[in-house]
Design a protein around this nucleic acid. Structure first.
Lengths: 352, 352
DNA sequence: CTGAAAGCGCTTACAG
DNA sequence: CTGAAAGCGCTTACAG
């Protein structure tokens, strides 16, 4: 493409330029290039040739404005650098690519103001769908404002899909079975001989935390094992939170025989704290996480966890957002977690 | 907002609706909302009120089309789930948010066709800038096609900025000092007493691999230490590649006293392979990586590496893309790596 | 300071 | 099948 082949003064080649060079009307050029209607073969050829010669790239904004269709999907997460999100994102990106969609990504760092702001931006972009990846809040205010913002978006034709439970959001959802997975893990650990547990958690307002903690505690209760409140240690929902929680546990006097961190990321921090304080895992204390992010296989010891097919969950949530719903009801896809025993857990030392 | 407050049949509230409700012209409403010109206070008030009452959201496509300005930045990486990218992305996202920009993300999995395709899509979106995160190729063909595509974009006013060296791309760049960092690491390891090395690398066509390997080998040579070709083991540029490379090393007969994996991600794989084969690190072999991704602190043993300020690099590359250049010359920001000694390296056992 | 109007680059009924 | 024209929702010279 050289300067004089396009309309002078314009930085981009337009459909008009292509049509002119091909000797057809704007309409015909448009029809050839997005193949809706039949066009006579020779005209078709000429348009294609002209488009190629001029290296024509359609203006997505003009297309969106004229056709009111956008190829953009908004994806909102808490932190791009969290490996849990990163694994899900892999599936999201792959599936987006397969559908020729662009992903607009936003990190909110759990700042509600930022979440609202991003939804407004995505509304402005006329994103075709918005994906919320990660735990919701058990919080009336947060829910109300998010809900209002999203409904607004949905009324204008936008689609919303989420990974993880959001109490009242009316949206398609991929739901990891957090309660069931945590319960199954508890039963497995009890089966190993453990009777004395602690749980390291993030803020209990997060639905994911509430579900995993609840499922774990309930299963223990069914086995006749109590989880005293002072054995539930709440900290940041991060690696450093796990580290801090484990340190608080260590300072709290006698250790339990088994610790459950509600996410692998927190478990990584806990493992580091145990190592730094000379506590052997699983010799002195067993440790388990949840999620099965890829790295936990490479820890020493490799981490027992509840495996979630994260990549697949990303794929599914994107597909929910893209596929037209058969009915008006929200679709729900439940994802089962599978307990994976690795060397970070063992039978307790002085059993009996 | 209720149905009858906006133009019937339209899903979105438009500026026209706002203007009508405020009793002003389209132009005035526009001026109030993007604050270019002065507008009389009372009109201003009325427009703001109307906009709020109708929950008006501007149509970004119409804005982009009319003003030919887009708030979107394209970010192209190889794999969103790679922790190296994830850390850089954190800085990118934060900086984007500070500037009110949206990030359109693309994963290419190093597929050249996909890279080209994404650049075309970003061109269609009239993205304000494109960020290439990750190593370039020492490959004429790849370079030619990428170069052509990007120049095309740049001629139309697009900005391009990269992290890592791309031989001939005319773009602003954040350049980690791979050669120097690897050389410094080599000197440090030699200082520890090592004389017998192996290097685990990704494809040597990647500029990052070439630079780190080259810097390491040169520094060894300066110390009078040879790095035989069969001590350079090439594999995939991933965790599994590192694992495979380490296994090949183990099968190759006598172990070196020290192994350098050109990225932390490969080092993680190597560490797992050593563990699986009962090779003690650093007892039998020392291991070092490069990048200092967050997780390597939590490995056992924690990994010696060359630390790069990844988050900061993300911030910088975004700022290069956003700030107007003073001259037409490409700007280059060099980033120094710092050797961080952790427990994965030690003096060799049977020294002397 | 304010408004009428042109124009951004497309798509898509509507006639032919 | 093809083309002239209206319209998508804004911004911004250009007059007043």
């Amino acid at each position: 493409m050289t300067e004089d082949e396009r309309t002078p003064g314009r930085p981009h080649v337009t459909l008009q330029d292509v049509a002119r060079r091909a000797g057809v009307s704007l309409a015909t050029a448009s029809r050839v290039l997005n193949g809706t209607t039949q066009v006579r073969a020779d005209l078709r050829e000429r348009v294609l040739a002209a488009s190629g010669e001029l290296a024509y790239t359609p203006n997505a904004h003009a297309q969106a404005l004229a056709g009111s269709s956008s190829m953009a999907i908004g994806v909102i997460c808490h932190d791009v650098s969290d490996p849990y999100f990163a694994s899900i994102a892999r599936g999201v990106m792959r599936t987006a690519a397969e559908h020729g969609l662009m992903v607009m990504l936003a990190s909110t760092f759990r700042d509600p103001a930022r979440e609202i702001e991003y939804i407004a931006m995505l509304r402005a972009q006329r994103a075709r769908a918005i994906l919320l990846i990660g735990s919701g809040f058990e919080d009336r205010d947060w829910e109300r404002s998010m809900g209002a913002e999203l409904e607004h978006y949905q009324r204008a034709g936008g689609r919303v899909a989420v990974v993880s439970r959001h109490r009242t959001l009316k949206a398609d959802a991929v739901l990891p079975q957090n309660r069931e997975g945590a319960a199954e893990l508890a039963r497995t650990l009890v089966g190993l001989g453990h009777r004395d547990f602690a749980v390291l958690t993030g803020p209990r307002l997060l639905t994911t935390v509430a579900d995993r903690l609840g499922g774990f505690a309930d299963a223990l209760a069914e086995a006749g094992i109590e989880l005293p409140e002072d054995r539930v240690i709440e900290a940041g929902f991060t690696r450093d939170g796990g580290y801090a929680a484990a340190e608080r546990l260590l300072n709290g006097g006698d250790l339990p025989t088994c610790v459950f961190a509600v996410t692998d990321v927190m478990a990584i921090g806990a493992l580091a704290a145990f190592r730094d304080h000379g506590v052997d895992v699983p010799g002195q204390v067993s440790l388990a996480g949840f999620d099965d992010i890829p790295i936990v296989r490479d820890l020493t010891p490799p981490l027992t966890t509840v495996a979630l097919p994260l990549d697949l969950m990303g794929e599914r949530v994107m597909e929910l957002a893209v596929r037209e719903p058969a009915s008006r009801r929200s679709r729900v896809e439940r994802i089962k977690g599978e307990v994976v025993l690795r060397s970070s857990t063992a039978a307790p030392r002085q059993r009996r």
